[in-house]
Structures are given as C-alpha cells and as structure tokens.
Design a protein around this nucleic acid. Sequence first.
DNA 1: GATCTATGTAGAT
DNA 2: TCTACCTAGATCG
Length: 239
Amino acid sequence: MPSSAAAALSGRVLRDTEAYGKHLFHRYPAGRTLHVHLGLYGRFTDGTGEPPPPLGEVRLRMTTRKHWLDLRGPAACEVLDPAQVDALVARLGPDPLRDDADPDRAYARIRRSNKPLAALLLDQSVVAGPGVIYVTEVLFRAGLPPTTPGRSLDPEAWQDIWTDLVELMREGVERGRIDTVHSRHTPEAMGRPPRVDRHGGEVYVYRRAGQSCLVCGGAVRTGILAGRNSYWCTTCQPD
DNA sequence: GATCTATGTAGAT
DNA sequence: TCTACCTAGATCG
C-alpha cells in the first residue's frame, strides 16, 4: 500500500466489512474504503498476542489488543473513495453468496454469447466470485462440458447451475475449503479412495487430468480454455 | 537450491 | 492471445 494510503488508515478504527465477488472492502470513517483483492498469490495470516516481526513484504497489518492480521502478495490493496467503489462493483456480475444477487442478469449475458460456458462463468462481469475450481466442478455436476456454448444453455440448466453455485459456495464459506463431491457420488461409495485436492477439498475433476473419473471410471481430460486449465470427463459431460 | 506452478486479472500486442 | 505482477508451497535434480 502506498504510504499515502497507509497514512489515510493508520490508527483508524474499522467500521464494517463487505465482500463482493473476489473483492473485499473494509470501511473506515470519512468514506474511506480499503479494497483488497488476493489475486493469485494473496494470503492473510493471523494470530493472537504480539504480532511477529514482519516477514517478507507485508502489505497490510491490522492489530487489536489481542489479535493481529497480516496480508502478503495481494493483487490489490488500496484505499478507494465511494465513487471508485461504486465503479468497481458496477462492473461485477451477480455474486452467488449475496442475497441481492440477480441470476437473471448473468443468464442474459450467457444466452447471447457463443463463448464456452467455462469462460463465461469465470468472467467476473458475468458472475462474481467463482474461480476455476468452482466453475470446473459445477460444470461436472451439471453434466456439461466446459466447451458448451453459452447460447445453448437453456433456462432450467442455468437455474440448476446457479442454485448449485449458491449451495457449494455457502458450504465453502462454512467449511473454509472447497468440497464438491456429492453424497451419492462419494469416492467411498464408488469403492475408490477419496481424492483430496492440495487446497484441502474433495473434488471430482479439478486438477485430476489423466486420472479416472470418480463416477464412471473414465479418464479425466484436460485442456486450456480462456487461458485457464480446464478439466472434464467426456463420459459424464458429453458434448 | 533451483525451478515450477497456481483458488487471478490488467494491460499490452 | 500473451505477459507481467507477486508469493509460497511443491517438485526436481
């Protein structure tokens, strides 16, 4: 954070916090808002007692009498005024984790696009929040390949995907990890050992290229879509 | 110890 | 479509 931004917040008391998609907002007095986006590498660490000496580049440190919180590697850590916050939120699609989300707004974008569904769902101006794990897994659960053109998605299929995103992401917040493996499709039920992603969650196809599908046993396929790794099962997600 | 990779996105080409 | 950004854990040799 530039020193001017640090000066704007240093010593101030945090009033409120809010998340919109992958963006975190901390509200401070006088309309000042700290905006944090973790990007690919950003990470918070926290603890109790005296904060440790800063290790590496600490972009933000928050403290109370009992707790401390450090932020390293974020894509964004900046102070915005209300107009800048409004502009940022205005370019985001509906967030499945928010009560004010309007899934019809996302579907209007999807149904008039020929782009692959995976690319559309990763586009934060279409849907705000889901990353490549949720998008990969929700498409598996829907039985649709990531290459499905947005235009071909019917309203019922979109409703199912949206509902699934809401449920999976709420569960992710509660558990602090991404689990997408449905009870009736558990690896245990399929007679195979559970596969825990290195991020700590159980998933069907994400980063499982070449391994066997947990549901049908076929090989999980991988490819690059919209610049991101994509994974799917050609049997469970037929064209 | 060096190199690779990645829950992402903005900006250049 | 490509590249840079930036950090840390995984993987390689």
